[in-house]
């Protein structure tokens, strides 16, 4: 496995404003990594650096074996597909003409335009002007151009923004096929929840810094956030039962009919075993692991404190 994208201590400043600060990470062949962060966290700038559209202030990076802002990179970019945030096209051109233009730029046969349009479900709109496209259609046309020439590396900036849930699912299906075919994918997103089971690793950025980069399971574990357990109990038994709960669980809330517990990940199984020993005194139980949003918020908080 080789690293197709490799960043070493990369920083980028525009004047006094540092937008990317000391970021190091690598993407292996066929890996899918999601960049997550607020607006202004430096995700787009990081992508521009990877594409060679801007140069780092310090640090080094290699994409497909070359420095992306170097002279040789123009040729290396044949193996690269990019979908910019809020992708824009010449309004007066038809969808098919747009793709034909970009196909020629990547030295691919222009007749592939229709195949690509069909792949993103735009075959019906091939002859319509891009100016008449909806946001979702523009986004799909953007994805179609990024797929030209079956690139080794795909860089997608907010690829699902403007897509309805059905199109989002369709997008992630396409992504799964691409990954299965060995494409390396770097995408950015605001929504951590939709990334579950869809990327290998998640890189969390905050104010230009990479605060975490690991699998979602590892991030959950590292965050060490408590699991919440909700118990339904017979009327009036709340106080009595809460006294019999494992001491490592914290009682968050008790009332007549229910008990709210939190417990650390490593104590969870012991607590659950204790609860099942209570027999019929527990009428129902709901277990909620920390959500990805909570994990994300945790890493941002930890970074802001540091």
């Amino acid at each position: 496995m080789t690293d197709l994208i490799e960043l070493r201590h990369v920083s980028k400043a525009y004047g006094d404003a540092t937008v990317v600060e000391d970021v190091s990470f690598a993407l292996r062949e066929g890996e899918g990594v999601a960049l997550v962060g607020h607006n202004g966290a430096g995700k787009t700038t990081l992508m521009k650096l990877i594409l060679g559209l801007t140069r780092p202030t310090s640090g080094t990076l290699q994409v497909l074996g070359v420095e992306p802002s170097s002279r040789e990179a123009a040729v290396a970019r044949r193996g690269l597909g990019f979908l910019p945030e809020n992708v824009a096209f010449e309004q007066a051109m038809t969808g098919r003409d747009v793709l034909r233009f970009y196909l020629r730029l990547k030295r691919q046969p222009a007749k592939q335009a229709d195949v690509l349009l069909a792949r993103v479900g735009l075959d019906g709109a091939a002859k319509k002007r891009v100016g008449t496209y909806s946001k979702g259609m523009r986004q799909r046309l953007g994805l179609a151009q990024a797929l030209i020439g079956a690139p080794k590396v795909l860089v997608l900036d907010e690829p699902t923004s403007g897509l309805d849930p059905a199109l989002r699912a369709q997008f992630y299906d396409t992504l799964r096929d691409l990954k299965a075919a060995g494409t390396t994918v770097l995408l950015s997103s605001h929504a951590l929840t939709e990334l579950e089971a869809r990327t290998d690793r998640v890189a969390i950025m905050n104010q230009g810094r990479l605060v975490a980069c690991a699998t979602l399971a590892e991030l959950r574990h590292a965050a060490g956030l408590p699991t919440r357990i909700h118990l339904s109990v017979p009327p009036g038994a709340g106080a009595a039962i809460s006294a019999r709960v494992d001491a490592r669980a914290e009682i968050a809330h008790v009332n007549d009919r229910s008990i709210e517990l939190t417990c650390a990940p490593d104590a969870k199984m012991d607590v659950l075993r204790g609860l099942s020993a209570l027999g019929h005194d527990v009428k129902d139980m709901e277990i909620a692991p920390p959500t990805l949003e909570q994990v994300y918020a945790h890493f941002l908080r930890r970074d802001d404190r540091a």
Partner: peptide, 17 residues
């Protein structure tokens, strides 16, 4: 300003070209 430049320059083409 239209946002088409970013995409164009991500293609295998040098700026002078």
């Amino acid at each position: 300003e239209r946002g088409t430049l970013l995409l164009l320059l991500s293609y295998p083409i040098a700026r002078w070209q």
